[in-house]
Amino acid sequence: MRETIHQLEVLRYDPETDTAPHFQTYAVTCQEDWVVLDAINYVKENLDRTLSYRWSCHMAVCGSCGMVVNGEPVLSCHAFVRDYPEKIRVEPLANFPIERDLVVAIDDFVEKLTSVKPYIISAEERPVESGENLQSPEQLAVFKQYADCINCLLCYSACPQYALNDSFIGPAALALAHRYNLDSRDEGRSARADVVASNPGIWECSFVGACSEVCPKDVDPAAAIQQTKIASTVDYFMRFLMPWRKQ
């Protein structure tokens, strides 16, 4: 198998000893089918035990290994070394505080996800004995794409609005709120509206679409945000036109 030598420039930062992040370069001989994560694992196993990063599934579904590689947020287990030049710069996801090396603190996302109530809300919980809810393939297709979010947070790293204003709920959490709003089994849209529609960020989201471009699962959070805006606008006017209408 063909091999190439790459210079891996990795951002290093240990808050116990470093005053500022810096880069450290490792020369790694990579096989042509390697992903960037394989090269990082090679460093960890053979060159430097002190490098910290997250990874697990190595099949682009657990969402642990998001990093910025040569300026683009990617899943490092799904970014092939052969697609990069000799120099590969690896940095932690942008717009989150660095905890250590390539590990960022994602508390802010977890709080925001929780705030949008990403679960089925219904007036009464049905007993299991009543059987499954019927949901047609068409009803499923309405929200399915938004349910594919793996919470890898590449979209937050790419989002210009989140970079400016960290009170913005952000692409993934809004896509998941939208996912439940669109689910035929859910009745929670008005319960979510307080957080979602009133979040200043969504009105400032400029539909740059950077979030959708970097999404490894084609969730298209930008579309979710635009649809949320439209739905919220309709709700706003309907309140005056049809005050009796159930929200």
């Binding site: 000893t17 430097d48 035990r49 002190t50 910290s52 905890e99 090396d101």
Partner: peptide, 9 residues
């Protein structure tokens, strides 16, 4: 080899 307390894998 890593003697840091922070996210020491």
């Amino acid at each position: 080899r890593d003697k840091s307390n922070v996210f020491n894998t």
